[in-house]
Design a protein around this nucleic acid. Sequence first.
RNA 1: GCGCCCGUAGCUCAACUGGAUAGAGUACCUGACUACGAAUCAGGCGGUUGGAGGUUCGAAUCCUCCCGGGCGCACCA
Length: 586
Amino acid sequence: MNIFKKFQADVIDILDEMVKDEFIPANLDYSRVAVEPPRDISHGDMATNAALVLSKQAKRNPREIGEELGKRLLANDNVDSIDVAGPGFVNFRLDKNYWAEHLKEILSLGVNYGDCKLGNKEKINVEYVSTNPTGPIHVGHTRGAVFGDSLCNLLEKADFDVTREYYTNDGGAQIDVLAKSAFIRYRQLLGEEELKIPEGLYPGEYLIPVAEGLKAEHGTKLKDMPEEEWLPIIRKFAVTQMMELIREDLKLLGIEHDVFTSEQKLSDDGLVDKAFARLTELDLVYQGTLPPPKSSNIDLATWEAKELTLLKASEFGDDSDRPLKKSNGEWAYITPDIAYHFDKFERGYKTLIDIVGTDHDGWVKRIKAGTRAVTGDKAQIYPIMVSIVNLLMDGEPYKMSKRAGTFVTMRDVVEEVGAGVVRFIMLTRRNDQVIDFDFKKVVEQSKDNPVFYVQYAHARCCSVLRNASEHFKDEELQNKNLLKANFKRLNSEDEVELIRLMSSYPRLIESAAESHEPHRVAFYLQELAAGLHSFWNKGKDNEDLRFIIDGDNELSLARMALVRSVATVLSSGLNILGVTALEEMR
RNA sequence: GCGCCCGUAGCUCAACUGGAUAGAGUACCUGACUACGAAUCAGGCGGUUGGAGGUUCGAAUCCUCCCGGGCGCACCA
């Protein structure tokens, strides 16, 4: 459990008593009363801002409230000492045994330590990756993929019922381009070697296996068909192949989606019509014209106002109304997307998370407005925009383009530097920070990469436990036996420090999940790893601080409990990031 | 022109969402391997949080205006 929450509840109980004793008035707003670790550890184990938050409402000097609160807090058995500091912070220290006892919780919960009830089993849909099925996954999509996947892990740990979803854009014109490109490869395969790939089609060699597949399934007969006959066949075939490719690519990073939703199928099943009907029913659709575009990269001379079918998007926070149908009667691009989000809502998700790149900024506003409109504002949509990754090669921009066929795939990068490194780097920043990803540096400096630092700490724990098996029987080192260790022996400042750090893990998980910020886990892990490394090195100077003390099995066993706990928390955090914890370094 | 995001130590990034003396890594300087794994540790150097106002007990965080950078702004997908 989150011990900070426990003490927050204790503080609020005390505040209630103070109300009863008429020290402060009743009906104060406690919502901002927090119990947190102080920024500076020398201030104490925990701090509450209660006096500061309440002073204005209570019309009382914050220090007075603080002094009184502190006095009453001291009566708590677990509280060792208190100190009212600065403008009215109440700092308090906990009994050392309280900390040591906390290890029991880690050991008994194991990998479930840090779980919290934030989500309360709420169904939540996270859509991520969703790249067009026109080729392998580009490295530019890696960040969104990794971010989405780790966010899902985090949300699951926070008790959300998470669905990992991939939206397959298999309905648009880009699939015609894909099919036509595959058709050229097919003809080349059938002997037209000198046939060039025309400008505007995909030249990538990944379409050669598709051509081979077409030949295996259809022989040469596609070649003599008119385009309107082969196009749908090859579209379908190529999309299936591309999705397979994409799934394999994603697996390299340990990513697997639960649900793949096809745009084509959505439309075939009439769901776009349904969403449109729904919007019409809500009286949000009308015929009209839009003002000229404001973008400077559009030639206004060629632009003309036409009557379109429009959505009253501006009533839902968009800058202007948006077309649902083009002037030729076809759906505008956003309409199937609105239908898709409506479909998710109808499937029972009230919270929809979309992980997209910042280049989808314009799209986000539209889909937000569209989703609010079609669901009658009953769905919470959280678009999370992941900033771009600048690819560099030794400091120089690394240019690539799908059309030119020179792009670097995600696979290239993962095979070069490893899934763990890629994931950790991408997650050791806030999502709205731009990342410079330099291939040369990542490979060269892989030894200095923070992921190794954390891995090393985990491997050290494992190493200690391996060595311990010479002193203890295997069953003595099992968690349920370690629970019986005498935790009171863990009373050095360094040990308490480590336990303190671990005890803040549940709190971290909760806040990271709530704010959708997996990067916090990465930073936490580095901190915990540092704690472990530091304690380890103290054992060199001071033999009393070694993990295994000859002739003192009681202390050794207690320390094994400590080490096992550290390993558990490290491994739990790495799991969220999707990085496998290593038992030894090579 | 408009919208969104970013600007924090030489460099790469944090800062628990308004908390106390803004922290890590890296680089640089000093020190620790007869080792429970030195891919590690201990210490030092390094800041007007882009700038100017404002809000309040309290601002890197919120508001306004500038400066600089990124991304976007079509019936394209």
